[in-house]
C-alpha cells in the first residue's frame, strides 16, 4: 500500500528545489542573459551553507551565506558576459565547473556530519486542512517562501514598470538603451537575483530537503533547471507547473524500485527531461509560437554599446 500523503508531500519537497532556481533563472533569461552556471552555483552553495550552518550552529546564517555565495558566483558570470561581453555559454560552463570544484573544497569538512536541519513549520489553520494541509503545509519555511515567490515574480515581471523594462532589455537592448534604460545595470541585477535564488535552492537542498552534504549530490539537477525555464516558457507561473511535473519524475523513482533496477530508475529524471525538451523543441522551433510565447529574442546575444 502506497502512502499517498507521503508521496505527494515528497513531490512538493522535490519540486521546491527546482522551483527556487528556476524563478531566478527566468529573470536572468528575460533580461537576455543565459546563465548555464546554475548547477555550479547550486552545488557550491549547498556545500557552503551546510558548512557554515555546521560551524556556526545557526541554520539561518547558513541559508543566508548560501544565497550570498550564489550571488557572488553569478556576479562572476555577469562581469564576464556583460562587462566584458564574452560568450555566455562558455562562461556559464566555466561557472558550473568552478562551482563543482569549489563545492569539494567548501564541503570537505562536513562530509557525513549531521546537524539539525530546517524544521517543518506548522501554519495555523492552513496546516490543519485534511489532506491538502498535510501535503502542502507541512514543510520547512523555504517551501512556503517558494509559494509566495511565484505570484510575486509573476506580478513584478508582467505588471510593473521594472518588469516591462526587464523584458524590453531582453527583447531589444539597443532600443531600450536608446530610451535611456541602463541595460547593463538591469542585466546585472537580474543575473545576481538569479544567482541568489540558485544559492537559496542549494541551501534548501542540503539544509531542508536531503539534509546532508556529499560531493556531487545535485546529480546534475541544476541542468534540469535550465530545461525547466524553457518548459515554463519563461513565465513564473509556468515554472510552478513545470517544477511540480519534474518533481514528480524525481520522486517516482522511489516508487518503482521493485520493478526496475535502481540505476535505471536514477536515469528517469534526466531521460524524461530530454524527452520533454524534444517535444518542446519541436513546438518552439516555429517562429510564430515563439513570438506568441514571448521568448526573449536577444537571449545570449552580448550587448555592446556603440
Amino acid at each position: 500500500m502506497v502512502d499517498y500523503i507521503l508521496m505527494f508531500s515528497s513531490i512538493v519537497a522535490a519540486a521546491t528545489f527546482f522551483l527556487l532556481p528556476t524563478l531566478g533563472e527566468i529573470y536572468a533569461e528575460r533580461s537576455g542573459i543565459l546563465n548555464l552556471g546554475i548547477e555550479g552555483m547550486i552545488i557550491a552553495s549547498a556545500a557552503f551553507s551546510y558548512a557554515i550552518a555546521y560551524s556556526t550552529q545557526n541554520l539561518w546564517i547558513g541559508v543566508l551565506s548560501g544565497m550570498l555565495l550564489g550571488g557572488v558566483l553569478s556576479g562572476i558570470h555577469a562581469i564576464i558576459s556583460i562587462t566584458f561581453t564574452r560568450t555566455q555559454v562558455v562562461s556559464g560552463i566555466g561557472l558550473t565547473i568552478l562551482g563543482t570544484g569549489l563545492s569539494g573544497i567548501l564541503g570537505r569538512g562536513v562530509i557525513g556530519k549531521a546537524i539539525d536541519t530546517l524544521e517543518n513549520v506548522h501554519i495555523p489553520f492552513l496546516s490543519d486542512i485534511p489532506f491538502i494541509g498535510e501535503i502542502f503545509f507541512d514543510h520547512p519555511i523555504l517551501v512556503y517562501f517558494s509559494y509566495i515567490m511565484v505570484p510575486i515574480c509573476w506580478f513584478i515581471l508582467y505588471k510593473t514598470r521594472i518588469g516591462i523594462l526587464i523584458r524590453s532589455v531582453g527583447e531589444n537592448p539597443e532600443a531600450a538603451y536608446n530610451q535611456g534604460v541602463n541595460v547593463n545595470l538591469l542585466r546585472f541585477a537580474c543575473v545576481i537575483f538569479g544567482g541568489m535564488m540558485s544559492g537559496l535552492g542549494g541551501a534548501y537542498l542540503s539544509l531542508g530537503y536531503l539534509n546532508f552534504w556529499s560531493e556531487g549530490m545535485t546529480q546534475g539537477r541544476g541542468w534540469i533547471v535550465i530545461a525547466l525555464v524553457v518548459v515554463a516558457l519563461w513565465n513564473p507561473l509556468g515554472a510552478f507547473l513545470g517544477s511540480y511535473i519534474f518533481g514528480t519524475f524525481d520522486v517516482m523513482k522511489y516508487y518503482f524500485q521493485q520493478f526496475l533496477p535502481t540505476p535505471v530508475l536514477k536515469m528517469a529524471p534526466h531521460v524524461s527531461t530530454i524527452l520533454f525538451l524534444a517535444i518542446w523543441g519541436i513546438i518552439l522551433s516555429r517562429q510564430k509560437v515563439k513570438s506568441i510565447v514571448g521568448a526573449p529574442t536577444s537571449l545570449a546575444v552580448p550587448f555592446e554599446k556603440s
Binding site: 536515469m267 518542446w280 518552439l284
Partner: peptide
C-alpha cells in the same frame, strides 16, 4: 532543431547521467 538557445548544452550534459548509471 532545439528551438532555444543552449539546448545542445543542456542535452549533452543530461546525457552524461544515463551513461554513468
Amino acid at each position: 532543431k532545439g528551438g532555444f538557445q543552449g539546448a545542445d548544452v543542456v542535452v549533452s550534459f543530461l546525457l552524461v547521467f544515463p551513461a554513468l548509471y
